[in-house]
Amino acid sequence: MTPFYRFQFYLFALMAIGAAVLFVTRRSPVAAALWLVNVMFALSGLYVMLDAPFVAAVQVLVYAGAIMVVFIFVVMLLNLGRPGQLPDLRAAAPRLAAGVVGVAILANLLAVRRNTFPSVELAPPTDNVVTPVAESLFTEYLLAFELTSVVLLVAVIGAVVLAKRKATA
């Protein structure tokens, strides 16, 4: 674990957390979406640091490239108006409750994760990053893989049906 590795790891971690805070506090949906893209790039950097370069590439392609484009496309399609006219935060009491719930969940997660984890002897990471994932995906998890294709088909049909239907007022 070289110092440079540590420095980069914490750089990406701080980038992810800072961008997430900025994302959650932005009023305008477009600004929020762009900060979320920033979070996803930082997370993809963390994936590379954790020996998962294939997942990092998929993260950039699918999340930052596809899902966020759909979000921004919908924001611009809907013509929501100026940020000042957009729905505001909830009232003060629910916000306080949300803060309490957030801190409670954070404390809970941190308490669980401070445990020591049993370590398994793994083969050292090689240059070939796709083959192990592909072998596992197409043998051990083949059923789950096929089921996700069905889910995607249902989602596509559902999205078209929902978005095309005329409003029944």
């Binding site: 997430a20 994302f23 949300a98 719930v101 994760r113």
Partner: peptide, 14 residues
């Protein structure tokens, strides 16, 4: 854990 909590707070406040 921190990112997840930020997401929870966002869901509850926005």
């Amino acid at each position: 854990a921190i990112l997840f909590s930020i997401g929870v707070v966002g869901v509850l406040t926005r």
